[in-house]
Design a protein around this nucleic acid. Structure first.
Length: 873
RNA sequence: GUUCCGUUAGUUCAGUGGGAGAACGCUUGCUUGACAGGCAAGAGGUCACUGGUUCGAAUCCAGUACGGAACACCA
């Protein structure tokens, strides 16, 4: 074994071994309770980023721990076809060859898209492998698989038959770049410095004009009315009259509606029912015409009169300039407002009148809210995200689900070629030559909403996996997709399986760069997890991601932190090397810790039991950061810095029996520790575990450690406390007085009681090894030597005669300071204890603790004072 | 505008009603038979501010300031 840990070699070795042996496969036939997680399916568009890496690391930790804890653990992998994103990529590739999807035709384009999918799916699997994920590949799914597509059709048809899916002409969010409709949540609003353009529309009867304002002047071409508030005295006399729309010359009516805010602007609003959702509704109430002035690519159409053929932004410039010349537009005011952009293409989204398919959300949302109020609610971790979720449901709006794309689930609706009759069904009508299927596909999220059950065989409710593994136990995802995905899985799960699709939702944040900025392509500050793995290994990356934060919070990525975690791996590696070198081919059946053990043996075994308990408890509460810290400190501080150093005594000694026991303890402790750490750092723990005396084929399927009361030893813990204190004090004194270990000192320790003396005697060998004394005197009564440095510990006094080195004055000064410190402590404790409220109201054990501190401080102070008297005499 | 989150050591973050913690960085000393990517010993904090509850508040409550997020927006 090399003195440096090389993750590359180790990590490449174990993953194929795990997969080929089927360790990750769920086994429904086994007499175990199932535990299920479905992966949030990544888009097949490309590389996994650090956000994915974080998400899957948390899931892998959970599923590995549960597998070891004896569950039939299923972690189901899969990918999402990602309609818009993938189609855009494939189209981009075609464009390089100077072609559009229309040149290819629907079928050929889909063939190309499937090729893309196969290529990238393999790429993603490779990345999963590098991360070390314990996914059950035998159950891998893709949202466009036959089974999942069947589920999509089933859901569509059932919702349609229930009246919860409808088709109609409404204002939707239109992305002119990708030329498809979007749902409300696929639009991101950004504050933009724009302008408010004030215009005058002249009255038909020539009696002046009415003033209106807009942020999108080009839409005026589609105006079909002007609205004022019915109570607005300025305009009451104008209601019912008509104005002439400049440029177009259309006569449009002034209507009264309570929607209008009298305080804003002039109190009169131009109405563009084909290009604004509010205007659309208001237009319905007043039977206003709907005039579309834009085509699907964002270019002005034939209704735009002289502006036909101009791009929408070009048109805006032009129209502003023209209207200014005509003095229709008389004022331009700076105005900051939120402009919607397509989440995918980044293009400015147009509210656009269009015929689309929608899900009627209210009944589904009501069901989900009701479920959340019941005992079988979804447990959000941290729970504050439940509020986010409920707030969204309570303000639900209908979901536009049709997309003008080819890559996706085609809407199972057919129109009769002659009669135009609509048919919705699981399969095409029998006389399908007379019918034309709807060209559109469904929103990608429509299929991912079914993911927890469509992947398990639903709608076949007799499917084995569906019955065994659904509902799933926990879903892990980022807070940024609660609306997109989590909430939709919940309401669809309730509607179609009558159950919540998962018990818990573990929410994490975003990975940010070292400065706290979001990682983005435009900033170029993204970090590729595969680069991190290449440099430091997957274990280091995983440990960083698992321990970097608390649930729900964002995580900053620092390379230094990855490096620190690599160091941790290296530390484990070297500690294990030490253990293995001393184990000398110990066989599993030879591991025997029943013999007589040293203080260090008993102490480390106690610490191990505490660590097992603590880690197990924290895992169930998803406190991975705390687990990580607990293991880090146990391994580095307790095992490496103390236990290994102490174990060297018997290991390098002559007592074969003691040696054998310590070897066994080493084997025992390392085995349990590797298992506890395995979910976090699967590769290095497997590598080491395989070298240790072990039974079984892999640590992946080894049992989770259980703590044992019999191995806890309070006496050893007490002994260690005192010994560590003594050793620390001596080291400290040596460092301060600049006495190197090579220069032995006389060390005298006076124990306050026989018990303490016995304890020191038990640990004499350790004191000998760690304090480098020339002579070591232990007694209950010691004559303080002259010119010695002294330290008062709880229960013992330490004397180190340092002739020639000690400066009596400095020593007196140090002791004075020590006394002052103790004075303050005594004062503080006594103040607390003299407070009647404290003594009567605080819990008894807290009061007793303070009393015991008081005794200890007073005792120490007396001894310091006595020492001062000695030195000054 | 509503809701939520954050403010703790130089930096990144834990903690959470009973005397402030880790990692990294910094200082000093060590080629101690696993590891110098190591070991040992240190320095470093009015836990943002103001009130309140409590015997006791960094921790709970209210407000303020600053930073961030989500949702909703009046053309």
């Amino acid at each position: 074994m090399s003195t440096k840990y090389d993750p590359k070699e180790t990590e490449a070795k174990w993953y194929p071994y795990w997969v080929n042996n089927g360790f990750f496969e769920a086994k429904p036939e086994e007499e175990k309770d199932p535990f299920t997680i479905v992966i949030p399916p990544p888009n097949v568009t490309g590389r996994l980023h650090l956000g994915h890496a974080w998400d899957v690391t948390l899931q892998d930790i959970l599923i590995r721990a549960k597998r070891m804890q004896g569950y039939d653990a299923l972690w189901l992998p899969g990918m999402d076809h990602a309609g818009i994103a993938t189609q855009a990529k494939v189209e981009g590739k075609l464009k390089e060859g100077g072609k559009s999807r229309h040149d290819l035709g629907r079928e050929t384009f889909l063939e190309k898209s499937w090729e893309w999918k196969e290529e990238y799916a393999e790429f993603i699997r490779e990345q999963w492998g590098k991360m070390g994920l314990s996914l059950d590949y035998s159950r891998e799914r893709f949202t466009l698989d036959q089974g999942l597509s069947e589920a999509v059709r089933e859901v569509f048809v059932r919702l349609y038959e229930k009246g919860l899916i409808y088709r109609g002409e409404y204002i939707i969010n239109w992305d002119p770049a990708t030329q498809t409709a979007l749902s409300d949540i696929e639009v991101e609003y950004e504050e933009v410095k724009g302008a408010l353009y004030h215009m005058k529309y002249p009255l038909v009867d020539g009696e002046g004009y009415i003033e209106v304002a807009t942020t999108r002047p080009e839409t005026m071409l589609g105006d079909t009315g002007v609205a004022v508030h019915p109570d607005d005295e300025r305009y009451q006399h104008l209601v019912g009259k008509k104005v002439i729309l400049p440029i177009i010359g259309r006569e449009i009516e002034i209507v009264a509606d309570e929607y209008v805010d009298m305080e804003f602007g002039s109190g009169a609003v131009k109405m563009t029912p084909a290009h604004d959702p509010n205007d659309f509704e208001l237009g319905n109430r007043h039977q206003l015409d709907r005039v579309l002035v834009l085509d699907e690519s964002g270019v002005m159409n034939e209704n735009a009169g002289p502006y036909q053929g101009l791009d929408r932004f070009e048109c805006r410039k032009q129209i502003v300039s023209d209207l200014q010349n005509d003095e229709v537009l008389f004022n331009i005011e700076e105005h900051v407002h939120a402009v919607g952009h397509s989440e995918r293409s980044g293009a400015v989204v147009e509210p656009y009148l269009s015929t689309q398919w929608f899900v009627h959300m209210q009944p589904l949302a009501d069901q989900a809210i009701k479920q959340q109020q019941s005992e079988d609610n979804v447990n959000f971790v941290p729970d504050r995200f439940e509020k986010t979720y409920l707030h969204w449901l309570e303000n639900i709006r209908d979901w536009c689900i049709s997309r003008q794309l080819w890559w996706g689930h085609r809407i199972p609706a057919w129109y009769h070629k002659e009669t135009g009759e609509l048919y919705v069904g699981r399969t095409a009508p029998e006389d399908k030559e007379n019918w034309q299927q709807d060209d559109d596909v469904l929103d990608t999220w429509f299929s991912s909403a079914l993911w927890p059950f469509s992947t398990m065989g639903w709608p076949d409710e007799g499917a084995e996996d569906f019955n065994r593994y659904y509902p799933t136990n926990v879903l892990v995802t980022g807070y940024d997709i609660i609306f997109f995905w989590v909430s939709r899985m919940i309401f669809q799960g309730i509607e179609f399986t009558e159950r919540r699709p998962f018990e818990d939702v573990l929410i994490h944040g975003l990975v940010r760069d070292a400065e706290g900025r979001k990682m983005s392509k435009s900033l170029g500050n993204g970090v590729d997890p595969m680069d991190v793995i290449d440099q430091y290994g997957a274990d280091a990356l995983r440990f960083l991601l698992a321990t970097g934060t608390t649930p729900g919070n964002d995580l900053r990525f620092h390379w230094e932190k990855v490096e620190a975690n690599w160091n941790f791996g290296n530390k484990i590696w070297n500690a294990s090397r030490f253990a293995l070198m001393n184990m000398d081919g110990l066989k599993p059946e030879e591991v025997d810790i029943s013999g007589e053990k040293t203080i260090a043996d008993r102490w480390i075994l106690t610490r191990l039991q505490e660590t097992i308990e603590h880690v197990t408890r924290l895992m169930d509460r998803y406190e991975f950061g705390e687990v990580g810290r607990t293991l880090y400190n146990f391994i580095w501080d307790d095992v490496c810095d103390w236990y290994i150093e102490m174990a060297k005594l018997p290991l390098y000694g002559e007592d074969e029996e003691a040696k054998a026991t310590t070897r066994s303890v080493l084997a025992y402790v390392f085995d349990r520790t590797m298992r506890l750490l395995h979910p976090f750092m699967p590769f290095i723990t497997e590598e080491i575990w395989q070298h240790l005396p072990h039974e079984g084929d892999s640590i992946v399927v080894a049992a989770w450690p259980e703590s044992s009361e019999e191995l806890k030893d309070e006496e050893a813990v007490k002994d260690m406390e005192l010994l560590k204190q003594v050793i620390h004090t001596v080291r400290n004194t040596r460092a301060e007085m600049e006495v190197p270990p090579s220069r032995p000192i006389k060390l005298q320790i006076q124990a306050a009681t026989d018990d303490t003396l016995a304890c020191l005697k038990r640990g004499e060998d350790y004191l000998d090894r760690f304090c480098y004394p020339e002579t070591l005197t232990l007694d209950t009564k010691i004559d303080p030597p002259e010119k010695a440095v002294s330290h008062v510990l709880s229960g013992a006094e330490l004397y180190m005669p340092l002739e020639g080195l000690i400066d009596v004055e400095a020593e007196v000064e140090r002791l004075r300071k020590e006394k002052e410190k103790l004075d303050k402590e005594v004062e503080r404790v006594q103040k607390k204890l003299s407070n009647e409220g404290f003594v009567s109201k605080a819990p008894a054990h807290v009061v007793e603790e303070e009393r015991s501190k008081e005794r200890d401080y007073i005792d120490k102070r007396e001894k310091v004072i006595a020492r001062l008297v000695d030195l000054s005499s």
